[in-house]
Amino acid sequence: MGKLTIGCFASLVGSLNLDFAVKLSAAAIEKGHTVDLWVSGNGTMLSIKDQRPFKDYSHLEKPLKELMAKGLTVTACEACAEARGYNKDVTMEGFKRHSMDWYLASTFDADRVLHIGGE
């Protein structure tokens, strides 16, 4: 088995990149791989806790918690989060916050890297 690092720089409302990144993480973990997921830019909204699930609306908190329990490491860019007012108090438990070097370090010992978004 190997390690997959995914970086996701999701765009604005309507982008399904975050959904794709989480689903790909789930599929990789199910195959026995180790996954690091990094979110930057608007993707940092993934780190906010207590988001409400609406029908036909993307809601990733629940699957994310399940994946973290299975070993997913997920980290938000601290600067991007703070720039958006996403501070520690509203951050989901287990969701790490670091500067970009965490992402770079993760890619260096990954077997595969997928860098998503940034449109």
């Binding site: 790909l24 599929a27 595969r112």
Partner: peptide, 14 residues
């Protein structure tokens, strides 16, 4: 897709 990424291809682009 995960198998493809690990077994058939080395690099990715989006």
């Amino acid at each position: 897709l995960v198998d493809l990424m690990f077994n058939d291809y080395e690099k990715t682009a989006w």
